[in-house]
Design a protein around this nucleic acid. Structure first.
Length: 515
RNA sequence: GAUCUCGUAGCUCAGCUGGUAGAGCAUUUGACUUUUAAUCAAAGGGUCCUGGGUUCGAGCCCCAGCGAGAUCACCA
């Protein structure tokens, strides 16, 4: 890309033309960036959806604002298109209607010459249908609302809906998302689905009486998950702080404090690799409900996802990468050991660390010396099982070594009460019957410290205040976390997380020179 | 972090065995008062990502760097 040569300051010949026009507009006595509000009484969608030829008089006085997206000059008249947030509509500008007097400069000079594609305009007029049958606004009054100084890519669509010259370079699309949103079809819809998903979830929880809360993003001890954090520094306190990798331990403190249902939707930060399913900051939803267990939470999760997909998409089925995925519950439930046996034919439930290590070798799965039993099982699962779980599937009952914050299984030795929900081969939710025995919790942290000493960089740190809070008594509780970005990817059919983030993380365009 | 691929006009892309750049759209000028990927005529627009090297000569070959995408590893 030509980004290195200075995308910020270099102007193309086309951009220079716009600067010249800006000057010319001012010389005409017209403010290219006027202050006054422009009042619309409709929008493109309302007109296109409701206009009827026999009811044309209802549309005899419309006003709307938007960007000029195409111009088809025909001499003393012109067809053009205006685009607002909800769509696009054709407009018809006739010189003698816009300039009824002797002075034709608004049409001849301003509109024909100095108004460019991308400019924000306000129009008033009446709606009619052209000879070709297209609903069109016949403009009687034209206002320039904001001049565009850069050339917008022009994306054209023919009658069959074929797209020409789409603005398709992913780098440019992500860096200049404002352009992507403006010129490419369907981009806004992705983010509308994202927004609706979050708001549907929030509404669903609020209806149950659970409380939306906010917990610290800056944490002195980063806990609640296995991941490398971003480190920062507080100047006044002169101490290191970490951006949260999870908020679990804080939310549980609130359950200790007497809230019976709390949830938080917010950003987490993990200082790890980036690829098409990982961004350094991502959005998670975590919810904790007192007096519940993970069996209850599975039912809740089914019901939540079924309701949300229905609300957002109008149906529970989505199509992803050619596969039909149905969020209608109930979902298949299968324990971790059963799942591994199902896809490998090997029963690992009684295997010790050495046996698992041999099995990994047999399956050509590369493992590290510092991996404990839990991690080895996780490797086998990730390699042999995960990818097969296309329809929503609960994997339950994880080995205790992998899960230091979950309660021991009520009946199965060596396991914890945990489930993860897999869809399309990817984990999208994770839940426990939360560990509320402070002595057990302390021992689990100590085991984590041991793993840390063996070289596991992601082992959790001891959180003494969290232990203290449990000593004050946490009711039996179940917690659930959902990766919002991944859920939105499923609901929008997007294979890359960057497609569902407005501004995915990018390296800087230019090296700093003399800053 | 590793490997592979890519970077040429505002956008989307061509560019042959190495001979100092092309198209469509967009822009500018002109024609056209119901067109629609408007049309017709003409014109302008380039640090071929950056820096080295090979060569009489590099968009093309080699090396290094920058940025992006895909795959893999780690993670959600």
């Amino acid at each position: 890309m030509h980004l290195n040569k200075g995308i910020y300051m270099q102007l193309s010949d086309q951009d220079l033309v716009r600067r010249e026009s800006l000057k010319a507009i001012r010389e005409m006595g017209i403010d290219p960036f006027p202050h006054e509000e422009f009042t619309s009484n409709t929008n493109t969608q309302l007109i296109k959806g409701n206009f009827k030829d026999e009811k044309a008089e209802e549309f005899s006085n419309v006003s709307l604002a938007g960007r000029l997206m195409s111009k088809r000059g025909k001499g003393a008249a012109m067809f053009a298109e205006i685009q607002d947030q909800v769509g696009r509509i054709q407009i018809y500008l006739r010189r003698d209607d816009i300039c009824p007097g002797e002075d034709k400069s608004i049409y001849n000079i301003l509109i024909k010459r100095h108004v460019h594609l991308g400019d924000h305009i306000g129009i008033k007029g009446f709606v009619f249908r052209t000879g070709m049958g297209e609903i069109t606004v016949h403009v009687t009054s034209f206002t320039l609302l904001s001049k565009t100084l850069r050339t917008l890519p022009v994306v054209k669509k023919d009658a069959e809906g074929n797209i020409y010259d789409a603005f398709s370079d992913p780098e440019l699309r992500y860096r200049m998302r404002y352009v992507d949103l403006t010129v490419n079809d369907g981009i806004k819809e992705i983010f509308i689905i994202r927004s609706k998903t979050i708001s549907a979830m929030r509404k669903w929880f609020d209806t149950k009486g659970w409380l939306e809360v906010e917990t610290p993003v800056l944490q002195a001890v980063h806990g609640g998950a296995a991941a490398r954090p971003f480190k920062t520094h507080h100047n006044t306190l002169d101490m290191p702080l970490y951006l949260r990798i999870a908020n679990e331990l804080y939310l549980k403190r609130l359950i200790v404090g007497g809230f019976e249902g709390v949830y938080e939707i917010g950003k987490m930060f993990r200082n790890e690799g980036m690829d098409r399913t990982h961004n350094p900051e991502f959005t998670s939803m975590e919810i904790y409900v007192a007096y519940k267990d993970y069996l209850w939470m599975m039912k809740m999760t089914e019901s939540l996802l079924e309701d949300i997909t229905k609300e957002v998409l109008g149906q529970t089925e989505v199509e992803f990468d050619g596969q039909k995925i149905d969020f209608k519950g109930p979902y298949e439930r299968i324990s971790m050991y059963e799942a591994i046996e199902k896809f490998t034919g090997v029963d690992i439930s009684e295997m010790d660390e050495g046996g698992l290590r041999d099995l990994c070798k047999q399956f050509h799965i590369s493992v590290e010396d510092n991996m404990g039993r839990g991690k080895l099982i996780d490797e086998i699962f990730g390699e042999k099982v995960e990818g097969n779980l296309i329809q929503p599937t609960f994997i339950t009952d994880y080995p205790i070594e992998m899960t230091p914050l979950a309660k021991k299984h009520r009946s199965k030795e060596g396991l914890v009460e945990r489930f993860e929900l897999f869809v399309n081969g990817k984990e999208i939710a994770n839940a426990y019957t939360e560990l509320n025995d402070p002595i057990d919790q302390k021992e689990r942290f100590e085991e984590q410290l041991e793993l840390g000493k063996r070289g596991d960089e992601e082992a959790m740190a001891m959180d003494n205040d969290f232990i203290r809070s449990l000593e004050f008594g946490m009711p039996p509780t179940s917690g659930l976390g959902i990766g919002i970005d991944r859920l939105v990817m499923l609901l929008t059919g997007k294979k890359s997380i960057q497609e569902v983030l407005f501004f995915p993380q990018m390296k800087p365009e230019q090296k700093k020179e003399n800053e």
